[in-house]
Nucleic acid binder design. Structure first.
Lengths: 260, 260
DNA sequence: CTTGACCTTGACGCTGCGTCAACCCTCCAT
DNA sequence: ATGGAGGGTTGACGCAGCGTCAAGGTCAAG
């Protein structure tokens, strides 16, 4: 007659595990001796070894009792099911590994490398750290909504940065937002450039029409993000409105210039 | 301002997950509106997306906040650690898959194929189902203790089954244990054969010496197993004792024939 | 006014045990 | 006889990451 410790040692498991198997009814509780100790016969050893064999192979404890009673075909079927689960789990983890290999701190987190390249380019033309971070967060919002299309958009965006007007715009905006003047006169200059760029884009037919995008939320969020990160964006929007454009990131020509 | 449902939908997670992140302090609790609803700003969206990006890559939630604040080198280090864990986990599961592929119902469970072959051979020479199952359980005990050495022992064991005496022995034992006679006369015949075989083995120097095996427990268990599966084994042991042999599975010549 | 879709907190469930806590039993050396 | 080490006993919480009720309060629309 064996004690629980001897049984566990023989089968290569912990005492706690054996008690757990009792609790869930996987291994029957044995008789107790006079002092209340569990006393095991050899059949318990054999059962426990079988249980561990299946458990080590990845069979969930809840299915082991069924499998020990199953006939060959039911057993094989159960094995297939479990193997499928294992395969799925391995795939999941391997996907995780591939993802994690792509991760870097800072700009590239939650963004495809194309966008990271765009942000690097932004920095190199003189955009401030704050500016780049704000852009990054905006693109994170876009990437979450259109993870595939964003990659198509980036080449155009990057090319756009060759335009001296755009460079000037980002520099001016950087200066404005790095300063703390409530009503910086350069806001007007920025608005002028943006209106001019919008005009060019409109002339080239590049302004998005409402139907092309199924969902306004990302743009609204980016708006909110910009305002949250610096309230002077609100003033910038007003200035754009005066110049006949509705927004600040997704521009639309206002139906009528408001009489002032 | 977004509700929790809108926030969750945008980031592609469940509402429950967002609340969980609040609970563990991963995502800060936002302000509440007049009715007690949580109201989220855009920064929460960006944070949540970053959190999901890391979580989807297999980063444990408990480490995500640290990683979001880490510099590039600490981040990379953390990534390595997590990747190592993922690799280990994948290996574990792949090991499980290899194990599970080997599993079959019945005889081969918890036994190497060599032993299964031995058991098949046993059946083919006329051993009864009960007999084979008892042998199987015994070998399970042995395999648990000496998983490597058992494979070396099997060829000899299988060859042993070519001996007509052994065949006769198993048939007689099968008949005895399939019947229900308390004191079957064939027990004596079985004992005679076993004694004879023991004599041959002893002469060939094949009897194990006590020092060769570091551990008696498996043999003791097999003894107990046999007695548990059929009490008449006890009688068989007595008969062996009368013939000058100590045991029934691991035999030793008794020091002196007891004067009767 | 009702209905249905959201929101709130609180709590248990899952998987397979690890790890106290607080106490009892046995055996061995002194 | 005694004391301590090394067993055993039940009971309970903890872990990871949420899913899933329960039992409500709120909001927008018909």
């Amino acid at each position: 007659m064996l004690t629980i410790g001897q049984l566990a040692a023989y089968a290569g498991v912990t005492v706690r595990a054996v008690r757990h198997y009792h609790q869930i009814g996987l291994l029957p509780e044995p008789e107790r001796d006079a002092s209340g100790y569990r006393r095991y016969g050899v059949t318990a050893v054999v059962s426990l070894i079988k249980i561990r064999t299946l458990a080590d192979a990845g069979v969930p404890l809840s299915q082991i009792s069924r499998m020990l009673e199953a006939d060959a075909s039911a057993f094989a079927e159960a094995i297939r099911t479990i193997d499928d689960h294992l395969r799925d789990e391995i795939q999941r983890l391997e996907t995780s590994r591939r993802h994690i290999a792509q991760l870097t701190a800072g700009d590239t987190l939650a963004l495809p490398p194309e966008v990271a390249a765009y942000l690097d380019r932004l920095r190199s033309i003189g955009a401030s750290q704050r500016m780049v971070e704000a852009e990054r967060d905006g693109w994170i919002l876009v990437a979450a909504r259109w993870p595939d299309r964003i990659v198509e958009w980036m080449p155009g965006k990057i090319a756009h940065l060759d335009d001296p007007q755009v460079v000037r715009l980002y520099r001016v905006l950087s200066e404005i937002f790095d300063g703390d003047e409530e009503d910086d006169p350069r806001l007007a200059e920025a608005a002028d450039i943006m209106a001019c760029l919008a005009e060019q884009a409109y002339a080239a037919g590049e302004v998005l029409h409402a139907e092309e995008v199924d969902d306004d939320l990302p743009h609204d969020l980016i708006d909110a993000l910009a305002i949250e990160s610096d309230p002077r964006v609100r003033r910038l929007r007003e200035l754009m409105r005066e110049r006949g454009w509705s927004g600040w990131n997704r521009m639309e020509r206002l139906p009528k210039p408001p009489p002032d």
